[in-house]
Design a protein around this nucleic acid. Structure first.
Lengths: 133, 133
DNA sequence: CGGTATCCCGGCCGATACTG
DNA sequence: CAGTATCGGCCGGGATACCG
C-alpha cells in the first residue's frame, strides 16, 4: 500500500482528502471527530440504545451524541432503528460500511492505547528539553 | 503541566479511551484531530520541510501546522530535525511509532475515499427522507 | 425513554504582522 | 525559510429546560 500515486503534476484524485475542498474531508472529520470515533467504536460491540451509548461514551452530552449520530446516519455509517412503542425504544447499529470503518478505527485506538507508555516517556523528554532554563 | 494522576491505589484504570479522564484520549485527538491526521499522512510519504508540508496539507494555516507539529513531536510521533544553517532548514519526519500510527490512519483514509460514492448516495437518501413535505 | 430548543462561554482557528 | 505574537470571530459543545 506504499503507492505514491504521483503520476503527474495534475493527477488530482477526485476524493483526495489532502485537497482542501474535498467531500471526503467532511466525512473523515465525522469519523475521526471528537465523538464520532468513540461512537463508532462503542457500536462495534453491538447495537445500543441512546442512553446506553451515552453511558458508554463517557463524557458526551445529549446534544453532541444526538448531533454525532445524525451525521453518522446521514453518511450511511450508522442505522437507526426506531420502534413506535411506548415508552419509545431506539436502537443504533453499524451498517456494513460503518463496521469496516469501525474496524480500522479500533485498530488505531488499540495501537495508541498499547503504546501510551512510549508516548508518556516522549512527553517527559520533550517537556524536559523545552522547560525554561 | 500535565497531570498523569498515577499516584494512589485507586488510580488503576487502564488506558481505555472510552473513559473520560484517560490520557489516551488526548493523544488520540492529536492524531485524529482536524490537522493531525492529514499531517501524519503527508509525512508518511517521506520527510518534509515546514512549507512543503503546509502546501501538502491544503488549507492549514502556519499557526495550526506549527501547533499540530509541536503536539505530535511531544507525543513522540514526529521527529524534528533542524539544521543551523542560513537560511534555516528544518525537516519533519515520522518516528517508528508515528509510522505505525500513520499506516492505520492511511488505511482509514483510503477506505473512506474508496467508499465516498456510497456515502454520497446515503446522504441523498437521508436528505430526501428528512426534507419537509 | 429519546430526544429537541435555547443560551452562552471558552478556545479553536484564521488573518495579519513581526522576528531571526 | 521557519516560525512566534497577537487579535478577534465564530462555533463546538456543555447546561438547562422542555416535549412526545
Amino acid at each position: 500500500m506504499e503507492e505514491t500515486g504521483e503520476s503527474g503534476p495534475d493527477a488530482a484524485l477526485p476524493f483526495d482528502v489532502f485537497s482542501k475542498q474535498c467531500v471526503s474531508r467532511g466525512t473523515l472529520e465525522h469519523i475521526t471527530g471528537r465523538w464520532g470515533g468513540l461512537t463508532l467504536g462503542a457500536l462495534y460491540e453491538g447495537s445500543l440504545r441512546f442512553n446506553a451509548l451515552r453511558r458508554r461514551v463517557d463524557g458526551v452530552s445529549e446534544k453532541m451524541l444526538s448531533q454525532t449520530l445524525h451525521a453518522l446516519e446521514r453518511d450511511g455509517l450508522v442505522h437507526r432503528e426506531a420502534q413506535p412503542t411506548n415508552p419509545p425504544r431506539v436502537d443504533y447499529e453499524l451498517t456494513a460500511l460503518g463496521r469496516q470503518v469501525a474496524e480500522r478505527l479500533l485498530g488505531l485506538i488499540g495501537l495508541v492505547e498499547s503504546r501510551m507508555s512510549e508516548v508518556l516517556v516522549a512527553r517527559e523528554r520533550y517537556d524536559r528539553a523545552h522547560e525554561t532554563h
